[in-house]
Design a protein around this nucleic acid. Structure first.
Lengths: 195, 195
DNA sequence: CTTTTGTTTAACAATTTTGTCAAACTTAAG
DNA sequence: CTTAAGTTTGACAAAATTGTTAAACAAAAG
């Protein structure tokens, strides 16, 4: 048998991500992860050495994925409108699948008193902010600090999915109803940005 | 000495809230809470019986506080514009102090597979949604599903503070600079809602 | 001063969670 | 079939976290 052909290592990692990012169970123990994956708990140590190592790996991959999504959007040479439309489509799809990924990242950062990485991103971000400012000068979007533009955009996309459990109660909605509401937001957010 | 006149019980609870809601350390152990409060760990058990009991109490009080803030805003008989202006002022002030309170609530809900409470809120929420719809009919705000109006408003207020650690890195800003950016948002969000 | 009541502490116990290891198992290659 | 490499398991150990208790302490009342 060649190494890892049953994919147990991947299964464990995927299950951990599902618990953390999709179900928002960011406290999950190794036992809970193993149970959810349907494997023996000691396999977590066999494949990942320690709980912390698994967490670190999941954390790093989460960060890489987020960075990758943003990079692909920011660096593409589409016209601005399409770029944003594309961002909304891609990001909301991801966020509906993994609503708590950013929360997991932030929680881990707070827990370990911030080990950064991705200072390297600053230049790319600044380039994107400059591009946004150009669009404002052209009169295509409302003038403001371009940092607010980004903050607004991501807030409108991400937060409704993080707070879904609350809104489902307050709005008295079932899962499918709330999902439909989130679907509506793709168009709504775009029109919010480009009135 | 009359009971609790040193306020140790309150100190422990306030410290726990600070760790959870302000620092985002939602995994904090009883030892970490005790250390941060500068008291012996066993006092947590003396005053709160168990770790879970402390968490439950903090959770309930967090929920009550959020409900109270929303109720005071929604039930006040101010004109709509002032009502929203007031909401933005009050909520953003709270969120700048305790950015992770809602995240703590949601995390606990996810952890325990949602014990709701506050189904009772549904009626009040519906009344507020109806009021928003009236304002739309009057042409004072953009027409949309009033649920989206609320979601947008709270997303724009809350999420930038939750994601502050990330933005501080990506925007290369210090704490005071980021706080200033958040202050700007009071006006910005209001103008976003009432163009 | 003594008592009473409530508070704080350290030592200890219990529980929960994580980590280790040897043995059993599985499969493919020789 | 035998061997070799990787995988899985259960028993056990270690560590981390939480809970209990008795004794020391502090302050006010009698």
């Amino acid at each position: 048998m060649t190494p890892k052909d049953t994919g147990t290592e991947q299964l464990i990692k995927d299950t951990a991500k599902h618990l953390f990012f999709a179900e928002g169970k960011i406290h999950a123990t190794t036992q809970e992860i193993a149970d959810a994956a349907g494997v023996n708990r000691t396999l977590v140590n066999y494949y990942f050495k320690s709980r912390d190592a698994l967490f670190d790996q999941v954390f790093n991959e989460a960060q890489e994925k987020v960075v990758k999504i943003l990079d692909e959007v920011m660096e593409s040479d589409m016209p601005f409108r399409e770029k944003i439309a594309n961002l909304i489509t891609v990001f909301l799809k991801e966020a509906m699948h993994f609503p708590y990924r950013e929360i997991f990242i932030i929680t881990q950062m707070n827990r370990n008193d911030v080990i950064d990485a991705k200072r390297a991103r600053v230049e790319k971000v600044n380039a994107f902010l400059a591009e946004i400012e150009q669009e404002m000068d052209k009169g295509n979007i409302k003038k403001m600090n371009p940092r607010h533009f980004c903050i607004n955009l991501f807030s409108l996309m991400a937060y409704p999915l993080v707070t879904a459990p609350l809104y489902k109660i307050l709005y008295d909605m079932q899962d499918d109803e709330y999902n439909a509401l989130m679907e509506e937001r793709k168009k709504l957010i775009f029109e919010f940005i480009f009135p």
